[in-house]
Design a protein around this nucleic acid. Structure first.
Lengths: 349, 349
DNA sequence: CCTTAGCACTCATACGACGAGAGTGCTAAC
DNA sequence: GTTAGCACTCTCGTCGTATGAGTGCTAAGG
């Protein structure tokens, strides 16, 4: 078995599990001695040492320096979450508590997102994040135009889920508020219940059809509609509990911590990372160096998508040091995603 | 002059100024030697020592330990900003750059606030904050009702300055969207251009008048209006550049830094502090322990109010360590407040 | 062949001593 | 009032040493 460790025996897996769990709990390199102890002394430290040497050779463990204990590598964590982990499900009491907290926030989607973020960060003692639904994908309930100045109007979009978005649109020529109202009425009748991206297609089609026709107002309305819906919107990110990770010993160095906080501030990059998780089916875990961006290589993400009915809306989860308590956090994220989905599904129906 | 230092001579003031400026630049206790040097050697270190001893006795300087140099106390900073400071005005180039950055953000008030925050934090290398106008004080341009479910409607308010606010309102009985539109029209005609707080008064008055009358729809509209405008809104805070202060040597200790960041996260407390500045006439500086809240005692604020025309809207400024570069930051905040006021005044007209 | 005891070896860490350097306060002379 | 001189204090960095945890290897035992 030396030289070229072909495959992991059951014992290797057991030891790896113990080492990782111990390291997650203590944040300190773990030695053969303490593994033997956790093992009930059925094996001697010397034996464990041999096993650990194998694991180190496979790249699942590393030692900070000769004669320190072993520390899991990102690869080690990967195996752990894929096949070694003991998921520690939420207690009934915790689940009840969470459900209660969601019970009161049917009001507005924004509140729901904020509540979910707080909940995730609070229970994980790490950073909670929610990638909010992109407006593109949501069904429109209403569009409204408000004249702001001669050549500027404020466009307000309301989604069926109760989100409100607004943007300014510049005009070539002034349009009186009265006319704007009529145009809004026309468009509302046309787009209610459709998603933004579908609306975009529809407008292009209608424009073509209408070209021949002679209803100037409708033409103008379509044109304004196109302007309003033009931009691809970027997902909004809710984030909470960043101060939690300051406690983690791995960020005791101020410079490292600063790097992390700068990373959290750059929401656009964060969005891109979270967008990746959207592509995945079900819960996904990204561990340290699996992340492309340098600033994120010391962090892990546990993310799960959430839905309204069948429709994928966004993703939510927890960001923490690679040495995070996956056993606890994976079930937490899973449960939270389910609950958010349920809330959103109820609102939509 | 020993024993009971009655009043500060010109020399005392000069020395105090030099010590504070040196400490702000170096973050290190300053000794008599270096003060003498900055003085052009017109006085010997020994003389300076006597002066500094007086200043220490008055409570303007302190020493971290015997045989270290002197460090300004909060009281020392207070005297400094009140009467010793050499304001270092912005250069023409800087002013031009700032004006340029504001030129493009007429679009939306939110953008303007965000831009101002970024600008303040960027140029000060500290934390920039803007306390946004409370909706109460802004003039309403438009109100809109969107039915969200049977007993819930979404109320959307647009201010003349282009801010959009929304909230959910629960109803006792369902009202069809058609009727909601009519009600919105009635209310719009009534409230356009008034501030929220004035609208509140108006509605109470109208309600009383209308009691006798028989227009059920109008009655209902007024009631709904009251619900919509009921709550006192809390000011929103924009904040940027929190990562800047991580560099400051006074926060090298992780625990202190965490305390600061927790403080920044508690926006409600922040709002209360900023509200205090609103009461002040003109630019105000709050130094360290002058702050009531424990978490804030290591920080200073330089804040200035901004207006739309004559009307006081909010306050903006910079938060940094007590050892911040007041010479530079005071003019910066002052200028930014002026510019924001100008932008807002233009939009309103 | 796997397991284990024993042992030499390697580092990180804590501790104390030591010296250098910066700065003070005081005293006495100018 | 100002200044030179001096003794004193205190921090900080360095260095050597002791300590202890943990390893890898070897050889003996099941």
């Amino acid at each position: 078995m030396r030289g070229a460790p072909a495959e992991l025996t059951e014992r290797h897996r057991d030891v790896l599990r113990v080492v990782i769990q111990d390291y997650i709990a203590s944040a300190e390199p773990v030695g053969s001695r303490s593994v033997a102890r956790k093992y009930g002394f059925r094996l001697s430290p010397a034996t464990i040492r041999n096993v650990m040497a194998d694991l180190a050779e496979c790249g699942y463990l590393a030692q900070p320096h000769t004669s320190a204990g072993r520390v899991p590598t990102d690869q080690g964590y990967r195996i752990y979450v894929d096949s070694l982990m003991d998921r520690r499900p939420l207690t009934r009491a915790q689940e009840g508590m969470i459900e209660k907290r969601f019970y009161h926030v049917h009001e507005e989607v924004g509140d729901l997102m904020r509540e979910a973020t707080k909940l995730l960060s609070g229970l994980s003692r790490s950073v909670g994040v929610v990638l909010a639904p992109r407006v593109d994908q949501l069904a429109i309930r209403r569009i409204e135009f408000v004249q702001q100045s001669a050549e500027r109007i404020l466009v307000i979009l309301v989604t069926t889920s109760g989100q409100v978005h607004h943007k300014m649109v510049a005009l070539d020529e002034a349009i009186p508020q009265e006319e704007l109202n009529t145009m809004a009425r026309l468009l509302n009748a046309m787009v209610e219940g459709m998603s933004l991206s579908r609306v975009r297609q529809l407008l292009v089609k209608k424009m073509a059809e209408e070209k021949a026709m002679y209803d100037a107002l409708l033409r103008q309305a379509l044109k304004l509609g196109q302007k309003s819906f033009a931009e691809e919107t970027e997902g909004e990110v809710y984030i909470d509990g960043t101060t939690n990770i300051m406690h983690e010993p791995e960020f005791a160095d101020v410079e490292k911590m600063r790097a992390i906080f700068v990373a959290f501030d750059e929401t656009s990059k964060l969005v891109r990372i979270l967008d990746q998780c959207l592509g995945q089916q079900g819960l996904s875990v990204i561990i340290g160096s699996e992340n492309v961006l340098r600033e994120w290589q010391r962090l892990s993400l546990v993310m799960a998508p959430y839905y309204s009915g069948e429709q994928l809306l966004g993703t939510l989860g927890v960001i923490g040091p690679t040495r995070m308590d996956y056993d606890k956090i994976v079930p937490l994220v899973d449960f939270t995603a389910r609950l958010v989905s349920r809330s959103l599904t109820e609102v939509a129906s």
